[in-house]
Structures are given as structure tokens and as C-alpha cells.
Amino acid sequence: MRSFDYSPLYRTTVGFDRLFDMLENSVRSDWPPYNIEKNGENDYRITMAVAGFGLDEVELVQNGPELSVTGQRKPDQQNREILHRGLATGNFKQVFKLADHVKVKAANIHNGLLSVDLVREVPDELKPRCIEIGSEARAVPLQDSGNKQSIDSEPQRKVA
């Protein structure tokens, strides 16, 4: 990961401190790594590598078309000195945009992988339906200044 030095910009800008703080402390969008799979016509699965996070440290929230996965580590209670930190220990938040009518069916953590099963459930009233076409000719009343006509009949003509 690249690290940028924003100190020269601090000297030439006023009032942008918060922006530079956000850039320096920004959350990585590529971590934790994840896969999105299509398991059927309406079945999907998101698999995220969340090694080291417990069940009580990962939260899934679906708010309309957004699925938010947040990992918040609890503070380490053990007093130990770490000589090399190679494992990622930071918090994360990943937001997925879901299509219409996609809902979370199940979620579980196994061997450091969070699996979120999704299903698209389109309501019956929104599904395409076949409409039967009849062959019987029917008279349809038309509103024309008080005269009712039918589609099958000829219009009345006045002879002068």
C-alpha cells in the first residue's frame, strides 16, 4: 500500500485539515478481500476473509438496497509485546449495493470466512404474467355526444 506525504499541502491550504485527516486515515476499499458468486438464477453468495474476527465483532445490516458489513475489533485484553505485526488488525466497513428484491437469506463464519447467502425474491404481482387473449367479438360502448356505438356496427350516417 502506498503512503503519501501531505505535509507540503498543509503549508499552502487553509481549512482543509479534516480532508487531509480523512485521506490519511481512510479505510482501504480492497480489504478485507471478498468474492461474489452466482449460485443459481436467483441465488448469490458473498464470501469475505475476516480471519481473527469473532461472531460478536462482525455486523451485517441491510438498509434498503445496501448491505453493510462492519468489523469492529475489541481491544486486546492481554498485555503482550508484539515484535512483528503481519496480520491485519484494523476495523473495516464494506458496503454492497444490492439489486431490487435481493434479501439476505443466511450468514455464517467458518474457518475465517464470512459467507452471506443472498436470494432475489420478486413479488408475484411484479412478475411477468401471461394474459389470455379471447377470440369473441364484444361490443364496447363509446361516448360520443350521447350516441352509443359498438365496434362491430357501422357508424350511423345522416342523409340530407
Rank of each mutant, 00 (worst) to 15 (best):
A160S: 11
S145K: 14
R85M: 11
P65I: 09
L142K: 12
F53P: 01
E121H: 06
G54R: 13
A106C: 00
I36S: 06
P65R: 15
Y6D: 05
Y34V: 06
F92P: 03
K158Q: 12
C130N: 14
A51Y: 06
Q143P: 02
P123N: 03
D21F: 10
A99V: 08
P141W: 03
L9K: 02
A107E: 11
G64A: 07
N39G: 07
F20L: 09
A107Y: 06
E59W: 01
Q77S: 08
S150F: 09
Y6L: 13
L118C: 08
V119E: 14
P141L: 00
D144E: 07
N111R: 11
Q78A: 10
S7Q: 09
L142T: 15
S150H: 06
K127Y: 04
V122Y: 03
Q62M: 01
F4W: 04
P32V: 04
R120C: 05
V61F: 04
V69Y: 01
W31M: 10
V69Q: 01
R138V: 13
R85Y: 02
G86C: 05
R129I: 12
P128D: 10
H84F: 13
S145H: 03
N42T: 12
G15E: 00
I151Q: 02
P32N: 02
A106M: 08
R129G: 06
P155S: 12
M48Y: 03
Q143G: 04
N63G: 09
D100T: 06
K127T: 08
P32H: 04
I82R: 08
K93Y: 00
D76A: 10
A106E: 15
S145Y: 07
L118D: 07
Y34E: 00
D100Q: 10
E41C: 05
R80T: 00
K97E: 11
D152N: 14
Q72L: 13
D43Q: 15
L60P: 01
D43C: 07
T13E: 01
I151P: 00
Y6E: 02
E59L: 06
C130D: 14
N63P: 01
Q62I: 02
P33Y: 04
R85I: 08
F92Q: 02
L67G: 02
N25I: 01
E125N: 14
E121S: 13
D76Q: 11
G134W: 09
L83I: 12
A88K: 09
K105Q: 15
F4M: 07
S115R: 14
R138M: 10
N147L: 14
G134D: 14
E125C: 09
P155T: 12
